[in-house]
Design a protein around this nucleic acid. Structure first.
Lengths: 159, 159
DNA sequence: GTCTTTATGGCAGTATCCTGTCGTATGGAC
DNA sequence: GTCCATACGACAGGATACTGCCATAAAGAC
């Protein structure tokens, strides 16, 4: 029959909103990071690295992106002196991306603006519903990652 | 103080998941549309146009994207014969993007795969929670769009 | 009618992310 | 030790999105 189930339909509505919301969040992040010459993409890399030195590949996995995307951003951040590459005692080629004092100051500035912004936006919504939404999104992502593995190399879900 | 409120913190968690989920949804959409040579971006344009002829600018607004992004995709779809540009009786320059039979067939095929996929993924989750999440995402997007307008041309939310 | 504002598309350039391919480093099997 | 699978970075190229700027069409003010 190929008809929509209630759950499938609700999921479809979430998909549309995720696409739209993703765009607006990037816009907002760009605005928050702009006064110190940063963007959403650079900010996100800084945020991961602020949790401790990590290789480019590790940062990429944490963000759910491809290595090359993060590599390019990290190189730009290094060129601006916000991060630096340090030798990795466990891997000769995979250098560690580390925050510099300048990078930490930049992230601190952005973080202060982010708190005020997130509190302002989040404040207009119901706490329990926000938490439910966060949990649902995480579960959906896990379902997608699992589904991708299942129908991976030898997919058989054709029409 | 600049401390996180509970709502702001929950919103922050949603942001991270929206970024990750957005990537996984594009991946999944590419997989669904790939057998007929399409991508998530082209599929989304086809979906809007299937609701009736529309100008490029109208499609862009419906998708929450910039005009140029949609223009490029629409040109590619037209080159492949999935849509065509028709004269707009109400506007000489703004031609209408219309589905072709080929485009409709392609969208139908993708739609059948989408239904099965969305039902499969959505089926593993609670209906009420899915609906709550969809509603929260929509409300958050509206808050962001409103906030953007408020602090628009003459923003004054600096540090 | 004329003027101004707004909307639209065209063109050019940029940012972000992806894939594919390669050479090299690491770590475990043997 | 040697071999092989895996992981990582480098390089090249492409897809998707954005912005800025311009010319023209449409719509409303007058």
């Amino acid at each position: 029959m190929d008809k929509w189930t209630a759950e499938g339909d609700a999921f479809g509505k979430i998909i549309l909103e995720v696409f739209r919301l993703n765009g607006r969040l990037i816009d907002a992040g760009d605005g928050i990071a702009a006064p110190v010459g940063q963007t959403s993409a650079r900010w996100q890399v800084l945020g991961v690295v602020s949790g401790g030195p990590a290789s480019v590949a590790q940062v990429a996995r944490a963000m759910g992106l491809a290595r090359q995307s993060v590599q390019r951003t990290a190189d730009l951040l290094a060129a601006d002196g916000l991060v630096r590459y340090a030798d990795n005692p466990h891997h000769r080629r995979a250098k560690l991306v580390m925050m510099t004092p300048k990078g930490q100051q930049t992230l601190d500035y952005i973080g202060r603006r982010q708190v005020r912004w997130a509190n302002r936006i989040g404040g207009g919504h119901d706490l329990e519903q926000l938490r439910t939404a966060a949990a649902v999104l995480r579960q959906l992502r896990e379902s997608l990652e699992q589904d991708e593995q299942d129908s991976g190399p030898s997919a058989s879900s054709d029409v």
